[in-house]
Design a protein around this nucleic acid. Structure first.
Lengths: 208, 208, 208, 208
DNA sequence: TCGTAAGCGAGACGGTACGTCGAGTCTTGCT
DNA sequence: AGCAAGACTCGACGTACCGTCTCGCTTACGA
């Protein structure tokens, strides 16, 4: 019968009024905006309510705490999109340049440390945060992998560790001296890292 | 009379009862303990008051905000004390080991990101935080300098940048994956960094 | 045709699916139960929804507010049914006994004051409430009238006022000291009221 | 020493900043005003906060719930002050007139039923309410006692029950038909009650 | 037999108040 | 002045309830 067909067609449709996807969007957009203006500590759910013309219940129905809301908003931020030039050093520089762009134009630098801090004492949040951060790392690691495939970096290079060598100093600079995010310093660091990776790879392979 | 002598000896001595230095100690100790137990977000001044048997006024007479209090407490943490073995690679590893020790036994990982987050929108705090962090860096940079003096690292090595290459990944790991602070990963990273510094130094000096 | 006959027979029949009368019953029953358990302030429409397995829309299609719903539920309560013994004093006592029974077994004492309170600032509700209360008074007033007809009470006795003399103290006791609803006190009061009505009636008629 | 004298003079003085009595006054005054304007259901603590320029904490430090606050405010209302004319019937009429005055000029009629309703399911509140109501009854009962002392009412008259006969109908009228609080009706009722009390007293004493 | 109009359960939605909690300030009496 | 104690203002938190609305589905009637 028709009923059976319908049920079969969309068996998982839950009853009741479905959630309004547009609410999600408005909420996260305004959250992100407020995060940019005031930082995480200055973010209040009441302000989101006021600006998104949404009820508190609608927010808390979707995210359990202010922190989870912030992560969700944070997750809207664009990913870094590595370019492939064939020269890993310049690729990494471009990667850093993009990161720097985000740093200036998004609430990244305010949200991220706050969430990290909170995650230290909140496993649920830690997991959520980890998912998001992990996903953001992928494109960078892939960039390293391509350089290995190209033979530009040694085959024994561990991509995630190489990536960590790049991102670590960037993170340190953006957290502790965001005003001194000097490109020339990173040029030096990238040169050291790439040289180091090559040198260590050579040693390893010749040892083998 | 004795009074006149006292006044003459310390002309800037303000009138009234002098501050009780022991209060400072109790407050900071308890603050640090609470920071360790609950993290920065979980820290409340009322809790400090309760545990230190101190009045709120006594706290706010010394530090203007909860954040400044946290920095002051944080500043009590011991510094890393590099050992000098003559081999920079093993020295760095020892440095990392000590850092890891602090990570497990102090509220470092919780306090630091919270303060960073707050500092992003609060210049006063940013400056205070910078002072403290800067001081903590010094011993590590000195360690690099000694390696240069010994001739172990090229003379052209910029000590602060070298230090940043080491600390960055450590920070990144301790913030985002504190549970995976794996020693073997750092062994690899340190080898790459040292090799890179040497390689780049050689290239630079031969080019000169 | 049959259709025309039907339409003619019930010309005002509105189109669409007719209301399900069973819903009304379930809703009011559960409302009354909840009213008994939690009182008016503790009553929530959501709880009615949950227990009656009914949708909110179904409730609000029938009653405009929680208050109206409560009145409707309240109106289900049985009326007092006076007995006729030929002796007005014992009849009144029986009347009070019945009232006391309701007091213990129905949410009367909780619902009534709440509705009264609300009615003070809500004319619509006040009118609805008045209708219900008025209807409940009738049997008691009729009891007085029969006593007048029997000649037991003076012909000049105003039945509604006599009734009010009886009900007033009962109400006062059940509202402010429900735990002290002492039968012996009412025996005294009834004796006074009946004696008073007779004495005043005699004076009035002899004066006339 | 002086210390001991002081301590002895005021041994129960609790340490810390004492509560500001003026806050209490402002809060209760505004609560009463709002109660009058909006009734109990319309009363919100937030509105009290706004009008009294007081913080919520200051309110909740003193009263545990909105209901207790309402009782406290309610308790500010003036008591009925019976006049002594030597004629109990006219005294009762004057008593009723005063009550009627309060009914029109105070939030009595809105607050009282709401509190009664709530008290039915809240023993703590019930007790608080009972204290207040009991105190308000006293002057009326004393009025009856004086009439007994004067010999105007029989010595066997139970004062509280006589009082209840008067107040009951008044309560019933003010709760259910506040718009029809007709003086002439009460004139009749009072005549009946007084006549009844005298008649029953005579019967009792002659029987004895 | 089919379409139209309403009823129904489920549950999302805006709004509003609740009572709690924390930061930072102020006010006591005492030192 | 400093100190312990604790009241005070301000403002956000997360919860709960009201009354409205929007889904997909069902039920009756009338064309």
């Amino acid at each position: 019968m028709a009923n059976e067909l319908k049920a079969a067609a969309n068996p998982r449709r839950s009853p009741g009024r479905p959630r309004d996807a547009s609410r999600e969007k408005v909420i996260l957009t305004e959250t992100l905006a407020l995060l940019g203006e005031l930082g995480f500590a200055g973010l209040t759910v009441d302000a989101v309510v006021a600006r998104a013309k949404v009820s508190k219940a609608t927010i808390y129905r979707r995210w359990a705490t202010k922190e989870e809301l912030a992560i969700a908003a944070f997750d809207l931020l664009p990913l870094i999109e590595p370019v492939e030039t064939g020269d890993i050093e310049s690729e990494i520089i471009a990667y850093i340049d993009q990161y720097y762009g985000f740093l200036r134009t998004t609430p990244l630098s305010s949200v991220l440390p706050a969430l990290v801090s909170e995650a230290m004492h909140n496993p649920t949040l830690a997991e959520r945060l980890n998912e998001v951060v992990q996903r953001r790392r992928e494109s960078g690691i892939a960039m390293i992998r391509r350089a290995i495939t190209r033979g530009e970096l040694p085959a024994t290079t561990p991509p995630d560790i190489a990536h960590e060598l790049i991102v670590g100093p960037m993170l340190q600079r953006s957290f502790f001296e965001p005003a001194n995010f000097r490109r020339e310093d990173f040029l030096v660091m990238v040169r050291v890292i790439v040289a180091g990776l090559k040198a260590v790879g050579k040693a390893t392979s010749s040892a083998a």
